[in-house]
Design a binder for these strands. Structure first.
Lengths: 262, 262
DNA sequence: CCAAATAATCCCATATTATGGGATTATGAA
DNA sequence: TTCATAATCCCATAATATGGGATTATTTGG
């Protein structure tokens, strides 16, 4: 269900129609015959036909057989080696770098993969050598003990979260690590209610971290970003400011400002 | 250097300009600032600006920072899991299936990867269980002894071919396998001159195979397709007809007919 | 810190361009 | 063969993109 369709009057209706058509073809890999698309889009066949031709000429799509279009080879070639994850990392890195620099902390971006958190971006403040060394880009960590992990778990679909919680055991990394599934479950509810997660020395004794979700256009949580501090003591007093900045950054990366997600 | 720019008067100049812009951004991952693109394309800034907006709105590109565009996340997501190779396989399979069925043989499509031939498509005629079982899709074989391999080697850039030939040894799979680099070199020249390669029992005693190249828009050989027959005896008498069909198929897959490449 | 330079964004009258109804042709089914 | 469906083409017209130039934002240099 689409949320408030962008009313951006871009000024190039023709381009928009063409791109819309391309999106439809790309998303279902050309399963839908052209006639059906014409109906969906409320456009006459002749128009669709012309658009299709232009898309084909540009290498965006290719025609296989009757009623069958596909993403074109030139496009695939141009995008060689690109994955959604690598792209998300590229797109978010500048903002995370600024965030880290502003807050004098380390900023992370992570996504959920196979019940683990994969860190796609790690940006540390200024010249400070990356203080929290628990993470590295493109490596995975357990979800239950990190801020990003808790955010991602909190917004997991109901059944998946239940499955995760039942899947333990949750090994203690510090005295504060949450190891009881019931407590973890409650914590995740709090995360969802408060719209952020806190890791207060649950990975390493002096590590403190705040995390917030990134939203997609269709109201899913696609990733989470966090700020990590190497000194835990009294860190909470600064939560408010740091959360505000985290949220501003999240808004910019989510559908809000520039809107990387659909 | 572009070869005879397609004069296809597609009827949607606006879409074409937008897609052209997208291509330029995608290909160099947004390295070129907008102003430079405007110059390249011979369009005023305001137009570029509008096009950029439309592309961004459709999720095709995203803006990172000043002067910095990037392929959009929605597009990356829509194309998740797609590689140029998988796409080439999808696009060419129907044509190869028809070819195999028409000729009562097995058709292959292969590309060069790390000095080996990777078979991306294997389609056998009708109900016949795949006769030549030397190959499987997505597996690699030595290049020097197969039809497809010889085609790909023949059109390799000069230095690469020299390096390959110096890299032996070339193990004999049958009595007929070419194992002498000098002979192989000569064979490749013949392939280039005749525009096709023949494997006459060089992989397995009774295996006969004809292969021709697939051309890209900029006159490179991107892949090769072949017809394999399980009975070698007297097969040559039918070469002419089979080559004609192979070439027709290659033309259709190359820039000719529908033109999957660029 | 300000000023100059550069890039991005916006606006609007106009001509260029896409539009879509409908005719025609190709393809596949019966 | 005939019918049904989809693809392709054509063209007068309305709608749309166009781009010159003004305005605003951002960066750079002094």
């Amino acid at each position: 269900m689409k949320q408030a369709a962008k009313p951006r009057p871009s000024g190039n209706a023709s381009l928009e129609k063409g791109l819309d058509l391309f999106n439809r073809i790309a998303r279902d890999r050309g399963q839908t015959p052209l006639a059906a698309l014409a109906a969906e889009m409320g456009l006459p066949r002749s128009t669709l036909y012309r658009l299709t031709n232009a898309l084909e000429g540009a290498g965006m799509i290719a025609r296989l057989e009757r009623h069958h279009y596909e993403v074109g080879l030139p496009l695939a070639e141009a995008l060689r080696g690109m994955t959604p994850e690598s792209q998300l990392a590229r797109l978010s890195r500048p903002a995370l770098r600024r965030l880290a620099s502003t807050c004098g902390a380390t900023a992370h971006l992570g996504v959920m993969e196979n019940d683990m958190v994969t860190y796609l971006v790690k940006e540390s403040a200024g010249s400070v050598p990356a203080e929290p060394s628990f993470s590295r880009e493109n490596t995975q960590l357990e979800a239950y003990c990190s801020g990003i992990g808790k955010v991602l778990l909190a917004w997991l679909p109901e059944e998946e979260r239940a499955r995760y919680l039942a899947g333990g055991p949750f090994v203690a990394l510090t005295q504060r690590t949450i190891t009881d599934p019931v407590v973890l479950q409650e914590t995740l509810q709090t995360v969802k209610a408060e719209q952020f997660a806190r890791d207060d020395g649950e990975i390493a004794d002096d590590l403190y971290c705040l995390a917030v979700p990134l939203w997609t256009g269709d109201q899913r949580v696609a990733a989470a970003i966090s700020l990590s501090f190497a000194r835990r003591a009294e860190q909470r007093r600064e939560d408010e400011g740091h959360l505000a900045m985290l949220r501003a950054c999240a808004a910019r990366l989510s559908i809000g400002g520039d809107g990387f997600f659909s």
